[in-house]
Structures are given as C-alpha cells and as structure tokens.
Design a protein around this nucleic acid. Sequence first.
DNA 1: GTACAGATTGAG
DNA 2: TCAATCTGTACT
Length: 195
Amino acid sequence: MGKRFGRSFYTQATLTVGRKLLGARLISRVDDQLKEGIIIETECYIGPHDRASHAYGGKKTQRNEAEFRIGGHVYIYLVYGMYWQFNVSTFQADTPECVLIRALYPLNGYQTSLSEKQKMRLANGPGKLCRWKGFNKQIYGEDLASSSIVWIENGERITPRDIRATRRINIDYAGAEWSSKPWRFLLKRYAQFLP
DNA sequence: GTACAGATTGAG
DNA sequence: TCAATCTGTACT
C-alpha cells in the first residue's frame, strides 16, 4: 500500500494495465481537496486499429494527442457536452492506446452520514467520477508518474479470479467486431454497485 | 459557416 | 425511453 505507480507500470501492454489498475487507488488534489478512490471498473481502447478508439486510423488531433504520449499521461475529454471522461495513456510513445477509468469506490471526500449505497453512487460511472473528483480540462496531459495533482498508488491485492471481463459500453457504432471485444474489466465484488 | 453525433446520466 | 448540452470534427 502507498506506492505510486511509475512509468514502467503504464508502459505495459494496455490490456495488462487495464486489469492491473483494478484495486489500485486513484488519488487527486483538486481545489485543495484530497480525494481517494479504489478503481473498480476500467475499459481499454487500442488504436489505431480499434474502431471505437478516438485514434482509429491513426487520427491525431488537438483533442486526443495525449493518447499518443508514453504511458502514464492523462487523456481527458468532454462527451455529450457535459461529462468528462478520465483516461490514462498506456504503452509506448506514439502508440494511441489508453485505459478509461469507469468507476471508483470512494475512500474519503464524502459526508460520513452517507449510506453505503449513496456513497457508491458518487463515482460509479465515468462521468460521475470526474464530477466527484472535480476533474476537467485542467488536468489534461498530467503525468501520473510525477504529478502533484493526480496519481495512482497500489492498493487491494487482486487475483485473476476477482476480475470479470465484458464487452465495452456504448460503442456499438464501432461495429460488432470491435464492440464485442472483452476489453472492459471490473472487480466482481463491487459489480453489484455498478449501474 | 454550418451541421451533427457522441467512451453519459438521471428523470419520466 | 428520452432530453440535456456543447465541442471537435467534417463538410459546404
């Protein structure tokens, strides 16, 4: 517990990072508020071949350029005009691959009077966790290996038996081949709290 | 310049 | 089931 993941963690294969992030703790200090949560759901995007990736076909824009950076950088963008999505770049430089953090189990930064159910609702979705954490364009490109605003530390010990893999959410537009890939990972013991 | 869809969410 | 809400991207 309490050890920050460095560059060598994020430069592993994207599917490996997607699985190993489960059980880890996402820590951030935004607006002087230290908030910590266990990562319980992730999703992998492996451009340029992945039709669901923003970098499909090698497309590189001002919006997704962080995806191309060496593993460990924050790629955050707005969807549906109102929700931020927090991603971590993975693998090597110039490989547009990343992991979307889809849900957290809050460890602090909430009213202690909240019920377990209410607490779980704070960050059990990719848009909700950014709202809870206060994440927005401000953290675009931050390096998780050295940032003082946002980083990830190891946490719960996870074994393959603790993980469930499923198809990714809301990317049917990418076609059957890509939307059916089992690149979404979640911790079984928290599955009951996911929508 | 203008059109349009989207890695979501919460209400009805 | 559906609207909210807005920016990046594509196309005229």
